[in-house]
């Protein structure tokens, strides 16, 4: 393993955290999911909010953090998903991302870690946000 990989693996929280990445653009999803795995997270992927609900309700899967795009095709967007999680999986943290400015205020009320990440985001910002959230959850 390269020095870089060793360093970023050491950054991940312990024990192993599970992140669900919800993103309909496959190449964006691939890049961020891959980065998070390199950082030591266990990562599941969903193409849509509907798929995310399937995974979140699957008895075999436990998710600590959901990192979701806001704008997605289908009957539910990222806000709807965040509301569902808040109502049904209160222990699961949510981070939203969007390319649209208008989403910021709504996201602030749905995400524990404040306003959403604006696209395009550096991958390391996602890791920093996850670490903030999980540290906060441990203190609570």
């Amino acid at each position: 393993m390269s020095t870089l990989s060793t360093n970023i693996t050491a950054e991940a929280d312990s024990p192993l955290q599970t992140v669900l990445v919800v993103e309909d653009e496959v190449l964006i999803r691939l890049v961020i999911a891959d980065y998070l795995r390199e950082c030591g997270y266990r990562v599941h992927e969903a193409v849509s909010a509907e798929e995310a609900l399937v995974i979140l309700q699957s008895p075999e899967v436990s998710v600590d953090v959901v990192f979701s795009d806001v704008e997605m095709p289908g009957s539910m967007d990222g806000f709807g998903l965040a509301r569902w999680i808040r109502a049904n999986k209160p222990g699961t943290q949510v981070i939203l991302t969007s390319g649209a400015e208008r989403s910021a205020d709504i996201a602030a009320t749905l995400c524990e870690a404040g306003p959403l990440l604006k696209k395009p985001y550096p991958s390391q910002d996602v890791v920093d946000r996850i670490r903030q959230l999980t540290a906060k959850a441990r203190r609570a």
Binding site: L30, R37, R42, H44, E45, V54, I55, S58, E60, V61
Partner: peptide, 19 residues
């Protein structure tokens, strides 16, 4: 999604890089 998640996870557990 559930099937994809489970089989991908199992393959990663065996050391493969899974997309």
């Amino acid at each position: 999604a559930r099937v994809r998640c489970l089989v991908s996870d199992e393959l990663r557990g065996s050391g493969f890089k899974v997309l």
